[in-house]
């Protein structure tokens, strides 16, 4: 219990130094798109060690990306939404439309 109390007060102190949950949520998202500056990266990491909600949020954002990548790479074998293609007829229709709008024939 003593350790628990110590942890509590430690985390109170850290809260002054570290970004709050709102900022951390933004950093989690940003970290998916760019390499964060050192200070922000550190703030994110330390906060996440201590705060399970932000840790989950961070993990889940990365999981969502991972699942999307998995889905996209697995879908050569089917799955229309990912693999939706112009049909041959559509292609031809569009191609002839392009030709009929062709300014070179004027």
């Amino acid at each position: 219990m003593k350790e628990y109390k110590a942890m509590k007060s430690l985390s109170k102190i850290m809260n002054y130094v570290l970004p709050d949950c709102k900022e951390v949520a933004e950093l989690s998202s940003n970290s998916l798109d760019e390499i964060l500056p050192f200070k922000k990266r550190l703030g994110l990491k330390l906060h996440i060690i201590m705060c399970k909600f932000c840790r989950r949020n961070n993990e889940q954002l990365y999981l969502i990306r991972e699942l999307i990548r998995k889905k996209l790479s697995s879908s050569e074998n089917g799955s229309t939404e990912v693999n939706r293609r112009l049909s041959e007829e559509s292609r031809q229709r569009i191609a002839s439309l392009l030709k009929s709008n062709d300014i070179s024939h004027s």
Binding site: D20, C21, K22, E23, F53, C54, R56, N57, Q60, L63, E66, L67, K70
Partner: peptide, 16 residues
Amino acid sequence: GNWKPNRRPAEWMVDA
């Protein structure tokens, strides 16, 4: 700046 109680991320049970 903290999570509102009803907005806190829950533990996910996902098998990727």
